[in-house]
Nucleic acid binder design. Sequence first.
DNA 1: TTGCTCCTCACGTCACGTGAGGTGGC
DNA 2: TTGCTCCTCACGTCACGTGAGGTGGC
Lengths: 267, 267
Amino acid sequence: MATSLPIGDFSRATHMSVKTLRYYHSVGLLEPADVDRFTGHRRYGADQIPLAQVIRRFRALDMPVEEIRGILAAPDLPARNELIAGHLGRLQDSLARTRKAVTELQELLGRPGGAPDADISHRSVAQARAAAITAVIGELRATIGAQGLAAAGPPGGIYAAELFTDERGQATVFIPCDGEARPVGRVEPVVVPAAELAIIVHPGPDQGIDRAYGALAAHVARRELAVDGPIREYYLTGREDTPDEAAWRTEVGWPIFRTGPVSDHLS
Amino acid sequence: MATSLPIGDFSRATHMSVKTLRYYHSVGLLEPADVDRFTGHRRYGADQIPLAQVIRRFRALDMPVEEIRGILAAPDLPARNELIAGHLGRLQDSLARTRKAVTELQELLGRPGGAPDADISHRSVAQARAAAITAVIGELRATIGAQGLAAAGPPGGIYAAELFTDERGQATVFIPCDGEARPVGRVEPVVVPAAELAIIVHPGPDQGIDRAYGALAAHVARRELAVDGPIREYYLTGREDTPDEAAWRTEVGWPIFRTGPVSDHLS
DNA sequence: TTGCTCCTCACGTCACGTGAGGTGGC
DNA sequence: TTGCTCCTCACGTCACGTGAGGTGGC
């Protein structure tokens, strides 16, 4: 007659917890050889140890209980192999998905997974008081000069995304200044909101700036968490500063949710 | 004033299900801009769309809700990056585990992941009637010959695992035969139980058979689901057959739970 | 009145782990 | 009597999906 073990001993023999064994009993994956009709105590046969070990091995390979049951019940070896291969396929799918997630996260962190997009930088921009208008920079400069205010940074523009697709939408041009501007003509005081931006610098005059937009858009799509919000431009050097077009510099800023390397900040 | 959307519109705008949005509200991950005090209807601001998209992106990377909340609340960029990196690390761990599981499953299926162990084969052995003894083959052969029975296969032995570790345990030597043997002296009739075996062939006389055992044990540990049970030997060609020791052949069989390629069967 | 949208429970998922509260044999 | 083992509920996990049953505005 075969030796039989109480659940505790069987648990130690198989390195499965008592709770697990009771669970496997309840779902019919591994039934005890005997259950006492009065006390409910389970008894396992020593000859069930190898089966338990096989189950443990499959569970360690993340195979669902339901599928293990199927494998144990498979009528022949090809059926058994097919179930195992099915699980293998699912594991490989999840492997590919996880691998992709890892890559994306690495890119969000700015790790050298692909070459970093060298011409792109990041910036947290604090909000700033400014004088704003819907027309040209010269008018702004003259206005704040006349009001005895000083420029507190390069002039800039905020452009609603619809501008680029619908050809209509809100556009604002501003010069940050060190005090409250008084409204004069089309000039009004504004507070330029804070933002987190991915920045690319476009050299030269306006024509060709769409290449900078293209590069920035591609970068953001791949390596950043884009956020819907108006595009921003900063006019570092322009026609107001020098007639040499080659020396002009425009920054294009795309609003993002910041992750990745810490770079320069601008308040 | 900002545009606000009912949950259905916000759901379509963000590609999140209404159920998901309600869930995120209930756990405080994404609170609607306003909730009607009487009807309970939720309203979301259009400016919440980008935040929702960020959340969706992180969830697509399998980040737990609790951690996304932490990232959104992170006080600065390094803290944010650290949380993301933590998740990345966990993903990489699970990647490694899954990769290992895939390899093990492939080995169980006998895929060429490592070179297959060429000298190992598989066999399902049906149960067989036999004449058995705890001593030498010659005595068995003489006995069944005297009883007018024919050998139905090569002689074999069944050896309890304890034999190899404790140097004691049950050992049985048998010759399958085509009828019921009558007990004579130490010879008794037995039924050799069916088994699934991984098989290696050892050429030559007994000395050196431990090398075959070693190779078989290593193979089983890596590529099979081992099962506790007695080891079996089959004496295909031995001293009874030819005096040429180089021609002797012994098969060693290790009980397993069969997976992998279909090979020869022996009944 | 009929659709449509919105609401709040309540339950299921998967493989157990964690108690709570109680029993039986040495 | 004290430990120890064993038992059966019941609940929690994680991120929702799936109903059931009901309401409010066009």
